[in-house]
Design a binder for these strands. Sequence first.
DNA 1: TTGAAAGCGCTAACAT
DNA 2: ATGTTAGCGCTTTCAA
Lengths: 337, 337
Amino acid sequence: MVTLAEVAQHAGVSASTVSYVLSGKRSISASTRQRVERSIRELGYHPNAGARALAGGRSNIIALMIPLRTDMYVPVMMEIAIAVATTARTHGYDVLLLTGEEGPDAVRRVTGSGLADAMILMDVQLDDERLPLLRETRRPSVLIGLPADTAGLTCVDLDWGAAGALCVEHLALLGHRDIAFIGEAPAVYERHTGFAERTLDGLRARARELGLRVLHRPCEAGYDALAVTVARIFDERPGTTGFVVQNESAVEPLLALLRQQGRAVPEDVSVLAVCPEQVAAQASVRLTSVAVPAQEMGRSAVELLAAKLDGRGGQEVALIAPELTVRASTGPAPAAP
Amino acid sequence: MVTLAEVAQHAGVSASTVSYVLSGKRSISASTRQRVERSIRELGYHPNAGARALAGGRSNIIALMIPLRTDMYVPVMMEIAIAVATTARTHGYDVLLLTGEEGPDAVRRVTGSGLADAMILMDVQLDDERLPLLRETRRPSVLIGLPADTAGLTCVDLDWGAAGALCVEHLALLGHRDIAFIGEAPAVYERHTGFAERTLDGLRARARELGLRVLHRPCEAGYDALAVTVARIFDERPGTTGFVVQNESAVEPLLALLRQQGRAVPEDVSVLAVCPEQVAAQASVRLTSVAVPAQEMGRSAVELLAAKLDGRGGQEVALIAPELTVRASTGPAPAAP
DNA sequence: TTGAAAGCGCTAACAT
DNA sequence: ATGTTAGCGCTTTCAA
């Protein structure tokens, strides 16, 4: 293993000079710099991470806590994780992957041991048990998702409330009066996951303002659960002409079911999804959708964190404005029979 | 920040005693141990990761390289990543998440800096450019996926060849003679991804032995691509009665399309998927499938690695035997018209 | 512009 | 069964 001392000797300079060439924290003459860089290359030197962390007081590692459950939006989580990892690298950080399994202890362990300089939390509950710890520690953190109380926290999220409202507005404009909202699995609501509740609230509020009727139905993954849900919806509100879906695993089954029932999309029924662009574009019917900007969320979480680690920027809540893309799954409400 | 020295002082023992209580590497009297443990608890001590890594020569971190692309099997990757992270914790390791982006450089950086003690690589190409580096370094590694030449490497993978063969056997037994294999996107084959090619090879070989005819068609994600692919298949082989699908994003579109064309599953056409159990069980038709054991792959990769790190076990190739579960999507071939 | 040297907090010989 | 101590490889004052 090549050490900094060996590089220094090889280049005929002191250890500190090599260190400063690496960190750029003091000016180095061009010639020295070149000699040092040459030695580094020739010897194949890589600074020891542990020693760096110990001496420098920072590990250059960001911890990312992902949910253990996979009952929702797996591709979204994955996209966020990848965006976090790649963005972190561009800022000189590596990413430590933590699953929710350890719960709050993971926060203690990671901050306490100096394993990571900062953390990003996903799958934030409205009343998340990790929040007190985050507020206590002086290690920077960013939440992807909004808890109920954001005081003293930095958060990034899609403005789900606005997203819900946007869906209603679009359908209202097309003349729909009775709409159904097919949501995530019941468990997601039961554990008070922010995005699910906020979407629902935003959607309901706007619907009330615009005078639309809304039926909200959480829905488990899979075709059968969806079929039962839809049957109940048409049973209770036969006049339903618009569907808003926020449940990736329900999208394709819904389209299949409607097709099977002879309900044309969008002539008889409009379908609007809250999902990643990819899903909307690849569905069997091009879906009008409000995009879940997974990459942007991951990227900007890292950027906020990097800013905090550099002493720039303080806490703030960064809400991403939802965007609705009209595709082929929504159209004017059919004339009442 | 609480240090080991402070704990030692608080407990009235030497630093080394605290260290040994923590590591269990030498016997400690019950009373001292208790005093030390109490001090640790009271002071809220967490060993500094950097100092540990420096002094101990090991970081207790495993690096996991996941593919940057998301053109296939995202849920599988996610499941593997989660399994790796949770299993690693049970062995006392944390997981560093690397994306394929840096390529071979990531291997150099991580092994060179001592950031991680070992690594797990996913998305292995048959002729992967990272392999030479892995063979050079003395840091343990495990591949999830099989390259062409496994000499000197430790690998975990589903026996995809056997999986392909199993699919053919099942269909052959049901009397199918003409089958179509809808595979991953063309790019996946073009970059010689092991699992895709091996499945195809296994499937073709067994088909030849059993006298079945096979049409292999790679397929991009999305409904339209699938529709075109299926149209071509029935065009070239109108007598096709069995489909094998190894492309998660093609499963539901295929079922929808067949339904739409009035081809009943399994009465007119049988469909067999190579996919995670969850996908098979939740599809609009319960799919007969060969499972992709994502969790098991992640778990056993970590276990092989832990064994190597403990000095136990050497290189080996651990192939997981495929299992076929019969559900509702396959049945006897229809009598020829 | 560069060097010397004092730690950072822990582990693991080496003592006792 | 426990204490003493010399590093691990780097960063960063303090000096020149």
